[in-house]
Design a protein around this nucleic acid. Structure first.
Lengths: 268, 268
DNA sequence: TCAAAAGTGTTGGTTATACACCCATGG
DNA sequence: CCATGGGTGTATAACCAACACTTTTGA
């Protein structure tokens, strides 16, 4: 078995570009009835001092999901719980002053995380209401230039907008909302997620019927809450695990089990 | 303005991985009442002789969408018409025998393309019914190993399955079906798309009412068909252009204008 | 016994499905 | 005037938003 010295047919062609790749994480949670995103303050150039999504460069031999988890922990002290799914890939041109950089964005949805603390490359890490950092009405269609004044570093404003929009849509057609809740939760907990993410008020009585009547959304535990005021509420689990077995496994397609019937957003 | 010679804070850190990046295109169309995918037969190693999605390496200074269009044209002679959207990113580990390679997959949906012809790196290029190449029932959850015997090269079976599944879902909630149709089309043309992609029969009369009654889906042209047998049908255009202005622009989010109400798949 | 929260019954309007029927054209 | 495919009418059933009302707890 001799190897052709001049051209190995089983090698990457030399004309191919070799690109640095980053992963950025849109970590979302619901706090105080509002959707919050986890942001860091950049401690290094470029965009030093600006707010940014946690993230960083993929290391040699590393996979994307591994890199996402590592960067999140390094910069914010948070160990990824909950539901991690790929959002989309950005670049490589015109998004980083250092040159062509490809960025793969991930969406992380989870109930209240542990305490966040700034790590390497980050001067600070904290939760921000998305309404504070995203100009109202700035849908994903509105292109925000790189590092808009007062905005996020790089094209992170657009990535965040995409992540929020995806989350809003997926509440309708998938069981993603349960990823915002703890292991066991009440129908009211679930309703507060919908209300926070969509920014609407929903009728608790009709929502209860809809949620419990939608196959593939809830699974009874037989247990109830206690201690609170009022009648105890039934506790549920997510019917099909939103977190795929294996924890951080990179979900197959971003086409989860669809809810049927869907929980449609009320028309404005 | 002196530049720090030892460490430029505005440079990509040397520890970052530089990865070769490919783009792969899942090109779908409806032919003879069935969903077809455009595949090439690989003329070079690895996986020489196997069927694969058209695609190849991104070149230096090139953007992803540009690379996707270039590779598609090079390998199949097809100039991308229609609707191009990013599907998802795969890798970099464990998917290419040449080593870590990141692949960004695109979904291309269009009406009948022009003639396809094999180009460089491809021994053949042709349309295949997806049912021929994807084992029935192989949803995106079923992981098919790299280059399963008789299957597609690399992890292309999984990419294709993801693309088909995404297409099926998006017919329900978006106007994607119009991207399968020519500039002007009848309600029956549109119905045949739904029937082919979902693999079901739909009542022509009720479908007509639903399609014409769903805002954001159809736009009247005032014109009708002629020459065929039976009563002439009204011709429509896609209401909101599925192709974004600029042709191949990389769509903002994969969150297109949602149909309200959606056109739900009939329950099995 | 009261307040608070959970959950069920009821009702009237909307929407969907199934299918009978009419419309417009080519041969 | 008949065959063919396009499109509308309509009855029945299913669904849904609104809200009165009952249940179950803590104080």
């Amino acid at each position: 078995m001799t190897v052709e010295p001049t051209r190995d047919p089983n090698a990457v062609p030399p004309t191919a570009a070799a690109l640095p790749v980053t992963v950025d994480v849109v970590a979302l949670t619901v706090r105080d009835g509002a959707l919050h995103v986890l942001l860091v303050e950049r401690a290094v150039e470029p965009h030093r001092g600006a707010l940014a999504l946690p993230g960083g460069f993929v290391l040699p031999g590393e996979d994307l999901v591994t890199a996402a988890a590592r960067e999140l922990t390094e910069e914010t002290g948070v160990t990824p719980p909950g539901h991690l799914e790929q959002l989309r890939t950005y670049g490589p041109l015109g998004r980083d002053p250092r040159g062509p950089v490809l960025s793969v964005a991930y969406l992380l949805v989870a109930p209240h995380f542990g305490v966040v603390e700034a790590g390497s490359d980050a001067a600070a890490a904290a939760w921000h209401p998305v309404t504070d950092v995203l100009p109202a009405g700035a849908g994903p269609a509105e292109r925000t230039g790189p590092a808009a004044p007062g905005g996020l570093a790089f094209d992170h404003a657009r990535i965040l907008a995409d992540g929020v929009e995806r989350t809003r849509s997926k509440l309708e057609y998938s069981a993603l909302a349960t990823a915002f809740c703890a292991d066991e939760f009440t129908v009211t907990d679930l309703r507060r997620v919908y209300e926070a993410v969509w920014g609407v008020r929903l009728d608790p009585r009709n929502f209860s019927r809809k949620a419990t009547g939608t196959p593939g959304l809830l699974e009874e535990t037989g247990r109830t809450t206690s201690g609170g005021t009022g009648r105890p509420a039934a506790l549920y689990r997510a019917a099909r695990p939103v977190v795929r077995p294996g924890g951080l496994a990179d979900g197959a397609a971003d086409v989860p089990a669809l809810l049927n019937p869907p929980l449609l957003r009320p028309p404005v």
